[in-house]
Amino acid sequence: MAKVVIKDSPYNVKRAKILDIKSLTEKEKLFKIVFEDRSWLDFEPGQFIMVSLAGIGEIPISVCSSPLNRHYFEICVRAVGKVTNSLHRLNVGDIIGVRGPYGNGFPIKMIEGHDLLIIAGGLGLAPLRSLILYAIDNRRDFGEIHMLLGCKTPKELLFVDEIEEWGRRMDLHFACTVDRADPDWKGNVGLITSLIPGVDIDPLRTYAAVVGPPIMYKFVIKELLAKGLPVDQILLSFERHMKCGMGKCGRCQIQNLYCCKDGPVFTFKEIMDMAEAL
């Protein structure tokens, strides 16, 4: 059996260095990362990368920084499994493996010129943050921007400093809610769906970008349809356990679609008749 090194293998990973680690909540940490060769991770908001720790494994994580930031990129990691828990134990300066980006992100060129309604549930804010930052950086190219955030409790709120800043901005309409409040919470209490009827949007001019836990989609979509949003202007990003990221391993297949290659961002129109999608 001959064994040769194949540098052009699609499974090859690039060495990337952790520049900074910030605890966002008890379970989530934000990693600031740069490729060791200083190359740029050229991605679209909503795309994901495969992050690997040699000897432990590889997982798909969406990039949560602005795609225009050429100095570094960020990922927000919730410690739930083998790789994510191990990532949480890493320190600044540690080296990880990265390949990607993969998939279709949010169709920015289509959204530009329209209003944008962002609906983020829990960790769903991570991929959407990339879109938000892009939209803020290119504010004049977008119409009205509405942001609805929701999470279980105030303690689980991600990117608190940024959220405060977004809340203060004049050019963003911002609302936030928690499922269960604590004594210090002064905002809305209730599911994220409860915020939707109150948003003042022109449904035909608006693209909604929705990311959250699987359970959230059905209810949010129902509200958005009630609001009059066309089915091809509702954008959803799906979570599946991609292993290859290249439409081969079959793990992320939703009927004839591969979440990793055709998604993870889909319009509601693409998947509305598909069992196994939501």
């Binding site: 001959a2 040769v4 194949i6 499974y11 090859n12 990973v13 060495r15 040699a54 080296i95 493996g97």
Partner: peptide, 20 residues
């Protein structure tokens, strides 16, 4: 096997193929 790695000093990764 799709990759071999060595983290003794710093991460060294080599994608490989075995064939005959």
């Amino acid at each position: 096997t799709i990759l071999q790695f060595d983290v003794n000093n710093e991460l060294k990764v080599e994608p490989i193929v075995e064939y005959e």
